[in-house]
């Protein structure tokens, strides 16, 4: 079976770029299902355009539940199109489409959400803190260039590779995602120490009051800083981590607790 081979490289690239539309129809019954069909629409139209019944059926089949990472999607759609273009029916492509959904969501999320986004967001947020006006634009440009590159590489890879090498790719991606995680954890820990602000406002006078000389003051925060700088922010972040991870406290409660705690401690003059 030679198949139709109607699709050109351009069709693959177009489908890759349409990965941006994956969530255009997001809803709570089939998640990205409508989006998946929408992403494939022009390519499927080219394949089955002269047979409206077949096209409608393919689109309908592709509307079933789907949920993956948009940046990894081109890998899946490229393989899917390669198979469809060689004449395979949806039933035959469905297995690989569904098998790739979960693993690629995991790899894609740890790469984009947990590594790239926090990294760039903090780099450019700290630039913005320093008053560099271009920082937000740089954030958008850099983030999107990297994500677009991932999409194009994934799409091209899927088209070339076909279905044979997925296992090898996923072991390699595991190491990449681990490395990404390491950088991410280092950066986030550094950020927690830098950007969470908690300072003890209590100071008390020490020594005798002498006329003409300023009284020496014991500043608790300065003492803390000598032992371990940023100790309170780190301890508070660890407390939040503990509550999320071990006690399953939701963010609503954490936000509420933090706001109340901040106000109370500030009123008592402990933090400032």
């Amino acid at each position: 079976m030679t198949g139709s081979n109607k699709l050109t490289k351009r069709d693959y690239t177009k489908t890759t770029l349409r990965a941006y539309f994956l969530q255009n129809g997001f809803n709570y019954s089939n998640y990205q299902g409508l989006g998946y069909a929408l992403v494939l629409f022009p390519a499927l139209q080219k394949l089955y355009g002269n047979d409206p019944d077949r096209l409608a059926q393919e689109l309908k089949d592709n509307c079933e539940f789907y949920n993956t990472n948009p940046n990894m999607l081109p890998f899946i759609t490229s393989i899917h199109l390669a198979m469809a273009d060689s004449g395979m029916k949806y039933d035959e492509t469905r297995g690989i489409k569904m098998a790739l959904m979960g693993p690629l969501a995991g790899i894609g999320d740890s790469l984009s959400q947990f590594c790239l986004a926090p990294l760039f967001s903090t780099i450019f947020a700290s630039m913005a803190m320093d008053g560099i006006s271009i920082a937000p634009i740089l954030f958008l440009v850099v983030m999107n260039l990297v994500l677009l590159t991932i999409k194009l590489v994934m799409g091209g890879y899927g088209r070339k590779l076909g279905t044979s090498m997925i296992d090898k790719l996923s072991t390699k991606m595991g190491a990449i995602s681990d490395a990404a995680g390491m950088i991410g954890v280092t950066v986030i820990a550094g950020l927690a120490a830098t950007f969470v602000k908690m300072k003890v406002a209590i100071t008390f006078a020490a020594g005798e009051i002498e006329a003409g000389a300023s009284q020496s003051v014991v500043d608790i925060q300065a003492m803390l800083d000598k032992v371990a700088p940023a100790l309170l922010p780190v301890l508070y972040t660890m407390l939040m981590y503990y509550l999320i991870k071990k006690k399953n406290v939701t963010t609503y409660w954490l936000v509420l607790i933090t706001v109340i705690l901040g106000v109370v401690l500030s009123c008592l003059g402990i933090l400032g």
Partner: peptide, 15 residues
């Protein structure tokens, strides 16, 4: 003061 503490939640969530 609370505004300075709130980022801790975000970092803890990522962690």
């Amino acid at each position: 003061v609370a505004g300075g503490m709130l980022p801790a939640i975000g970092f803890a969530m990522i962690m």
